[in-house]
Design a binder for these strands. Structure first.
Lengths: 218, 218
DNA sequence: GGGGGACTTGACCGGTCGGTCAAGGACACC
DNA sequence: GGTGTCCTTGACCGACCGGTCAAGTCCCCC
C-alpha cells in the first residue's frame, strides 16, 4: 500500500505543529463563520499551505470537526476535574464546577458556537451528546450527594443538574461570548442564582411598595 | 416587467396554502437534518412539486429560513403574552412566561434546533438576537418590578432574567426535545428551580448524614 | 371562447465544494 | 550520491447546489 491511513500515520514534531495549526485556525473559522460556510480551501489558504496538507492530517472535513469537538470537551472536563480536586463538600463541588466552566469558556470563547452548531446537525449531535452526558453524570452525582446530606432541596437530580447547566451556559453565552464580560464576575452571578434562585430571603418580609429596593444599609 | 418581485406578489388562497406547505416541510427538514444539508431540491421533492414553485414563493433559501425564524419567534412571543395577560404579580408573570414557553416548545419541538443553529451563523445570528432581545426585555421588566417590590432578591435584572431563560431552554431541550417528556411537568421543575434555587430551605436545619433524604411524612 | 394572471414544470447553468493524486521537495541516515 | 520517509503542492475531478427561465397549465371572469 502506498500510504498508511491518516489515523495510523506517525507524525514528527513538525507534523504535530502543522496539525495544531490547522485545528486552531479551523476552530476559529468554524466559530466565526459556521461549519458549512467555511471551506477546506479557505482553511488551507488561511495558513498558507496547499490543499494536500489538509488531507495529510485529516481524512475529511467532518473528521476534523469531530476531532475539534472531542478535544474541546476533553479540555473543559479536565479543567473542571482539576478545579474540583478532592473537595468533599458536594455544594462546593458544584460551585467549583460552575466557576471552572466559566473560566474555561472565558478563554476559548470561540468553541461556544461549535458546541451549539454540533447539536443541530444529525452527524455531530451524537458525538456532542455522548461527551455532554458523561460530564453531566459527574454533576448529577454531586447533586445526589447534596440531597442525601439535606443540603440541597429534594427533587430529581437530573433536572436540578440540567438547570444548573442551563444557567451556566446561558450566562456564559450572553455575558461572556456576546458582551465580553469577565468570566469570574459572571460565575459569581451564576453561583448565586443556582444556590438561591430568584426569591428574596424570607427573613426579610415583603416590604410595602415604594420602599428602597436596594440593600438597605450599604 | 414580466414578474413582480416575490415580496409584492399577491397570493390566492391556494397560493397561501402552498407557501404554508413549503414552510412547514422545510422547517421539519431543517430541524432534522440541518439547514445546509437540506437542499432546495429535497424540499420541493418532499412535497412533490417542481423547483420553480419554491422560487415563486421565496426569493432564496436564506429568505425562507429567516421567514421561518421570524414566524416562530412571533408565535412564541404571542403565546407568552396571551398566557400572561394582565396578571399584576410580577413573580406570577415570570412563572406564566416559563410555563407558556414550555408549552409552546412542547408543541413545536422541531423549531428548537432552528434557533440553536441560527445563533451559530453570521447571517442569521443578528435576526435571532433582535427577536430574542425584544422578548428578553419584557422579562427584564418583570424582574425589575419584582426587585422593587422586594419579592425578588437584589441583583442585576438582566442576569437574573438570563438565568431564568437558561433554565427554561436547557430543561426544554433535554427533557422535552431529547427525552420527549411532557411540557407541563418540565415547567413545574423549571419554575421551582428558578424561584428557590438549589438550596434546601433553611427552616429545615442540615441533617446529620444518613437520615432519610425524601419527604419525611409522605 | 378568449384573455390574463396565478401558478407549475424541469432542463439547464455557473459556480463551488470536498476530495484525489502524480509529482516534487526537505531532510536524515547510510 | 542513493534511498526512504515525511511532508507539500496545486491542477484536477465528479458531484451537487442554489438559482433561472422559457414554456406550459389551470382557472376565473368577462
Amino acid at each position: 500500500m502506498a500510504h498508511p491511513t491518516v489515523e495510523e500515520r506517525r507524525l514528527t514534531a513538525r507534523g504535530h505543529e502543522r496539525r495544531r495549526q490547522l485545528m486552531d485556525f479551523a476552530t476559529l473559522r468554524f466559530a466565526e463563520r459556521g461549519y458549512h460556510p467555511t471551506s477546506v480551501a479557505e482553511i488551507v489558504q488561511g495558513i498558507g499551505v496547499g490543499k494536500g496538507v489538509f488531507y495529510w492530517y485529516f481524512s475529511s472535513k467532518e473528521e476534523l470537526f469531530l476531532e475539534i469537538l472531542r478535544e474541546a470537551q476533553q479540555a473543559l472536563r479536565r479543567a473542571q476535574r482539576q478545579e474540583i480536586g478532592d473537595e468533599p463538600d458536594p455544594l462546593r463541588r458544584i460551585e467549583l464546577g460552575i466557576r471552572s466552566s466559566m473560566a474555561w469558556l472565558d478563554e476559548h470563547r470561540h468553541v461556544f458556537n461549535l458546541f451549539q452548531f454540533a447539536a443541530t446537525e444529525e452527524r455531530f449531535a451524537p458525538a456532542l451528546r455522548r461527551g455532554g452526558e458523561v460530564a453531566a453524570a459527574d454533576a448529577v452525582r454531586h447533586v445526589k450527594e447534596g440531597i442525601v446530606e439535606g443540603r440541597i432541596r429534594d427533587g430529581d437530580p437530573e433536572v436540578l443538574t440540567n438547570a444548573v447547566l442551563g444557567v451556566t451556559n446561558q450566562l456564559a453565552r450572553v455575558f461572556i461570548h456576546e458582551r465580553g464580560e469577565r468570566g469570574a464576575d459572571v460565575a459569581d452571578a451564576a453561583v448565586a442564582f443556582c444556590l438561591e434562585g430568584l426569591l428574596a430571603p424570607p427573613s426579610a418580609p415583603p416590604q410595602p411598595a415604594g420602599t428602597s429596593p436596594r440593600a438597605p444599609a450599604g
